[in-house]
Computed example of a mutant assay.
Amino acid sequence: MSDQDPTNPVDNTQMLAQLAQFSTLSAANQTNTDLTTISGQIAKATGTTGITSTTA
Rank of each mutant, 00 (worst) to 15 (best):
A43K: 01
T13Q: 15
T13C: 05
L16G: 02
A43E: 02
S53G: 02
G47L: 01
K44G: 03
T36S: 15
T49V: 14
T13L: 13
D34L: 09
F22S: 09
G50S: 05
D34V: 07
T33V: 13
L25M: 15
T13P: 00
N32V: 07
S39C: 01
T24F: 11
A45E: 11
T55G: 03
D5T: 00
S26K: 11
T46E: 08
A43C: 06
A45I: 05
N8V: 13
S26V: 03
T13I: 12
I51M: 06
A43S: 07
V10K: 13
D34K: 06
D3I: 10
N29A: 10
A20H: 12
M1S: 15
A43L: 00
N12F: 05
L16D: 09
A56N: 14
Q30A: 15
A20G: 07
L35K: 01
D5N: 15
S39L: 00
L16S: 08
S26I: 04
I42E: 01
T36K: 12
Q18R: 07
T52F: 01
I42M: 08
A20N: 11
P6K: 06
T55Y: 05
D5Q: 05
D34M: 05
F22Q: 11
N29W: 05
Q4R: 08
A45F: 07
T55F: 06
Q21T: 11
A45T: 05
Q4C: 01
T54D: 08
A28P: 03
T31K: 05
T37F: 04
G47V: 02
G40W: 00
T46A: 10
N29Y: 07
A20S: 12
K44D: 04
S2N: 12
Q41N: 05
T36H: 09
V10T: 12
I38H: 00
T49K: 13
M1I: 14
P6V: 15
T33C: 03
I38K: 03
A28S: 12
M1N: 13
T48I: 06
I38P: 00
D11Y: 04
G40S: 04
T55W: 05
D5Y: 02
S23I: 05
D34P: 00
M15W: 13
D11A: 02
